[in-house]
Design a binder for these strands. Structure first.
Lengths: 196, 196, 196, 196
DNA sequence: GATGAATGAGTATTCATTCAT
DNA sequence: CATGAATGAATACTCATTCAT
């Protein structure tokens, strides 16, 4: 009875939803949420303004979905080895993996950093960010302690700051430092900090 | 009927200009440039919309002046001891002073981080930021080298990232780590990184 | 694979057409023509937007059909006893029947009153309403005259206004007066007016 | 200091506010609230769309102000002679005055009837309308009783309906009956109803 | 210098309607 | 017959900017 099968409709929906989200992410990341208009998104995506509202209730909802989706892609892939013991190799792998995540999701990270700095845009973002970050801090803390640090709290702060800072350089000023070298140096520095 | 003296006019101009800039800084820092309207600035400053345009050509110009002014207050106070030798005490003082600058100019830093992440807002900002940063990197590089580091470039990267990251935590998530302790730990970590 | 018979198709058509009209009537009556969207009608009717256009050329056409249909249900059932003499009993029955019509077609009446007041929505409505009303006025006039009124024109005005007003209360403010009592009082008042 | 005096600004505001309200009333009355756009109002008023929002927060606020203003002009002028005894002359004067109010505020009444029929447009209107109407009903009831009616409640219903109906004809179909004659006949009918 | 009325282009959003399937 | 994706024009509303006073 129905003309296109349910699957066909689903495929179209999925494809268009992704198209809109990808396009919006590019623009939000580059210009910011408020400086990006629905017209621009639609134009860049090659669709009509109206269609956008066929898939999203509002511009804000696009952002929220992007945040949700970003959190998932970024944090779900982290193997925090909860409860277990983290070996040196695993810790290094975790750091390298995190750098890869930034490399491969640059726009998500750009968006995230901008939301972090201007929390009024998406009220829930900063909170969620901290919640998602906590297990990471915990894993790192346990590892640092297990390595015999005599100031695990202090080392955690220094290391967290260093990694966050490296990511920020990555995202905002990748030409200041060569990022592959930065990665090595950060890993080295972690152990210098811990083993003293 | 008596006309105001030139000095009186100048005083008024200066005072109003500062009022507008301060108010704009608060709003830009908190909500972002695009999400802040001239009406909001005028309302919060207790003046009329029109008056804003008596002192600034456009909303963009307010931002540009804020950037300029921010760069000046932040970087002018840095004593980089160019050409001379930086002692350990001077380096520590430099770091502490930098942390103080963030503490005391939180809104400027908020604005700066947001501009850093979304360069389309103020085209020249990122470039300028790098230019202003270069002497700082140079000073740090020289200091690290003078301390006998066997990888001064690498240590510079790690230390720069750590400081930048600490500032970001300061600005965006000051409740995650106690900032006075963070300051100590960063200083300690600097030397752990260098002396290895 | 067996094709549906012409009858089956016709049944479906009729059934769907009625479904759409009923749903539209509810919404038009409650919220008004302009405040009701095709989406809302389709959603409430449990069909797709597109299907609506399979049965009606436009939103306006749904309204026009509703008007037509309303006129028919309302006025066709009136036995005006044209040319013949209307007895007192027949007149009373006519009034009671009219009240019943309002009671049973409340939404139609709501829609009609709103169209009456805002004639721009359906250009032809007011005219048609007057045309359909004329034989009613004539019947009433003849009856009033036959009852020996010494000012039949004047009495017609008063009685017409009273009935119209009672219907309006019915439709717009049924809680102000108990409608079954109102019906009795209106009938009584008619004769008070005529017999003086 | 200020260019235009406070009074000048006030005058402009008052004048423009009135202009917008008058224009909006015309259009709301003729086409309905939802079918009237801000563009149409602005165009007809000879001002820009933006200016409308300098004076009113929203289209809805214009309507609300019109309702408020309408209630005031219509009901404030009614002398209900509360607590006192209403003479026959006073009652007649009240009816005549009410007819005049409709005559002179035709558009307000059009708007009001449309809001009465479609209460979703302005949630509070119907309620308010009933509240404002109550003292009128009370005054009429007392008068009817004082005239020796043996069914004051019933007579009130009939008379209220008649007046409301007459107003509706006035507003929606003034060419069906000559309104000055209608006025006389309604007054007459009132007494026919009461005195039986 | 100061005001706020006025504008017009822009923004998010809605909606009647079309059409491929 | 039926679906819902797609469009484009329209809608309510915002906002940087201008300007007469």
């Amino acid at each position: 009875m129905s003309p296109r099968s349910a699957k066909q409709f689903n495929d179209i929906r999925k494809q268009k939803t992704e198209l809109i989200m990808e396009t919006a992410l590019e623009l939000f990341a580059e210009k910011g949420f408020h400086a990006t208009s629905i017209s621009q998104i639609a134009k860049k995506a090659g669709i009509s303004k109206g269609l956008t509202y066929n898939y999203f209730e509002s511009k804000k909802e696009i952002l929220d979905e992007l945040i949700q989706h970003g959190f998932n892609t970024i944090f779900d892939s982290l193997d925090l080895n909860k409860d277990g013991i983290v070996t040196k190799e695993e810790f290094i792998h975790f750091i390298r993996h995190s750098f890869s995540l930034v490399r491969e999701n640059l726009q998500h990270w750009k968006l995230f950093f901008s939301l972090l700095v201007q929390p009024h845009v998406a009220e829930t973002f900063s909170k969620e960010y901290k919640i998602k970050g906590e297990p990471v801090f915990l894993m790192m803390y346990n590892f640092i302690k297990s390595q015999g640090s005599n100031d695990p709290e202090g080392d955690l702060m220094a290391i967290s700051a260093m990694i966050e800072g490296a990511f920020l350089y990555f995202v905002a000023a990748p030409d200041v430092f060569p990022m592959d070298i930065m990665e090595e140096k950060v890993i080295n520095a972690c152990f210098k900090i811990i083993n003293n």
